[in-house]
Write a protein that binds this DNA or RNA. Structure first.
Lengths: 334, 334
DNA sequence: ATCCAGCCTGAACACGTGTTCATATGTCGA
DNA sequence: TCGACATATGAACACGTGTTCAGGCTGGAT
């Protein structure tokens, strides 16, 4: 570490490299552009000088000049449960793998709203929605700026928006049938507030399956997609009329409900079946062994990144709505 | 939705707004700059025209001209467990709250390395490290470009690097003493590979406490900070000489170990104590009720964001190393 | 009448890059 | 010898912004 040089903040530019290598600034730019006419020896000298000085082309200038920004925003919402965070982390990795750099917006509504207004000043190649509450407003702002939107997790019927969404209704309908076949007749549901679009869809799927068997929902509680809210909702439901199956709109709440039933000494699944949705890693743990619906994150990420690439390549591409297949995972709680 | 206009990709610029409002381009810029001389009526007219056209100043041009980029990178690594993902999500929210936009780099080593080279072309105000494996190399690259580094989670002794780190050794030493006071004498440890710096620190704290009581580590296993790896490591250890306490370097592995011991019918904590580190939300659930060391995420995020702000404000500020206090959380597994 | 200070305004510049344009040099075939 | 063509190179431009510069206008004090 001999002689750590503390330079002033000025960044090394192509002009600096040009001077150091004794060439024109144009040559430096060409040295970093494959397939452009440039003497091989000169190119090597430039790259050597660039490495020595620690030069990297300034992305701001390159983008302003007309280059691709490779910036993609992820509007991630509050990420209150592990599934949301896992999806966000997987999206980040997936975007990195295709050479896109995700600008992530998270936190509460007020913070996210303010952040959005500022982030939209950057030339985004796409905006990926994963919020649940502010989606329409965000999509409208993006449309005004010509930023393509990819909504993952809720379907938005707006021009300029691609949708990726798992088959919420089908999954929950399958689950409903499984419970009915297992002899359950009084089915309770724990959903979410109106802003949680998927909760409504999943509820609808369940209700459809029940109706087909001449049944209706025995009880309807509202959670917040967190473990604690599942715990609390289960407690509320137990205070009401009896039921023999508890369908939760996601795994986190199912695990919360499961915990409460165990605390109360109620045998699962003998007296009450408990099922969830998503198939988070925890659902497979022996401690829970939760019957659920698999909502594959890797497929979601692949679909989204593919959509990003195709949209960037062909901005006029027609909008798409892609459904992701889900499947029942039968474990020990139904 | 009458007449959805599908404009060509061109973005609205200040010149467009100027023409629409019948003023000079300078006036438009002034309208968005508080405290600059501009007729009030004219300012209102400009803002109205800007709103109508959907104008936002282009961040690339503004930054290139000399403005703040407000971009901060987070080198997040693979985020294999929920604690890592929670930290990342909290960092994102915290940075948004102070008006910084995080560019997140994640995924496996090869992906992250390639991503780094590209992301460094953007004028970053800071780089936040949260990786575990590639940190030194990343810090070196940043130092070469004059990008301030904030390492959170491991201490890097390099110029230009601020460090934020919880008191790993103290926390595990406290935990060691607690176990010894509880009568444990044969303590096993589940750590991580050498690249997991915190595992080494935590191990050291435990060993120190044991030595002070005239004891040594009974067994030493290697995990990967995931639940599954804790499960597997516990199985390996059970095949060896007996022990009465199992200290895991993080909660995820402790929960994995706990699951295995339950599967084998080994009473916890009667026969074997199991403890972790971090105090993730799951640790408090009745299903686990894990004794652990609280590693406060909110304090970490506050410290990091504060450091970012102070470093941006005063780039020549001396480097700091800030320790975050931890505390024992005594629950039911010790 | 003269000066000055305060407000207001448009032209011009700098930021750093990728690309185009014009020009120069070398090579090959007719 | 001449033209056609590929290769090589520096000057000049455009990208869109924030700020500086120089100047014009207004109103009041000297």
């Amino acid at each position: 570490m001999a002689g750590t040089i503390r330079k002033s903040a000025r960044r090394v530019t192509a002009a600096d490299v040009a001077e150091a290598a004794g060439v024109s600034r144009s040559a430096v730019s060409r040295a970093f552009t494959p397939g452009s006419y440039l003497d091989d020896g000169k190119r090597r000298a430039i790259l050597r000088a660039a490495k020595r000085l620690g030069y990297r082309p300034n992305a701001m200038a390159a983008i302003l000049q007309g280059g691709a920004s490779d910036l993609v925003a992820i509007f991630a919402g509050e990420m209150p449960n592990d599934f949301d965070r896992e999806v966000a982390a997987a999206l980040v990795s997936g975007l990195n793998a295709i050479g896109k750099w995700p600008l992530v917006i998270g936190g509460d509504e007020a913070t996210a709203r303010r952040a959005l207004a500022n982030v939209l000043r950057y030339p985004l190649e796409a905006m990926i929605l994963r919020s649940g509450s502010l989606d329409e407003g965000v999509a409208k702002s993006c449309a005004k700026l010509g930023v393509p939107v990819i909504s993952s997790g809720r379907i938005l019927h707006m021009p300029g928006v691609d949708n990726v969404c798992c088959r919420n209704r089908d999954g929950m309908a399958d689950m409903g049938r499984l419970l009915i076949e297992g002899g359950r007749r009084r089915v309770a549901f724990v959903g979410g507030p109106e802003t949680f679009w998927s909760a409504g869809e999943r509820r609808l799927g369940l209700v459809t399956a029940l109706h087909a068997a001449g049944l209706t929902l025995s009880a309807d509680a509202m959670g917040a997609y967190t473990v604690q809210s599942g715990y609390d909702a289960a407690a509320d439901l137990l205070a009401g009329p009896p039921f023999d199956a508890l369908v939760c709109a996601n795994d986190a709440m199912a695990i919360g409900a499961l915990s409460l039933l165990r605390d109360r000494g109620i045998p699962v699944p003998e007296q009450i079946a408990v099922v969830g949705f998503d198939d988070i890693a925890m659902a497979a743990w022996p401690a829970f062994n939760l019957t659920t619906v698999r909502n594959p994150i890797d497929t979601l990420v692949e679909t989204v990144t593919d959509l990003v690439q195709r949209r960037v390549e062909t901005p006029t591409k027609p909008d798409e709505t892609i459904a992701i297949d889900v499947s029942l995972v039968c474990r020990g709680t139904h």
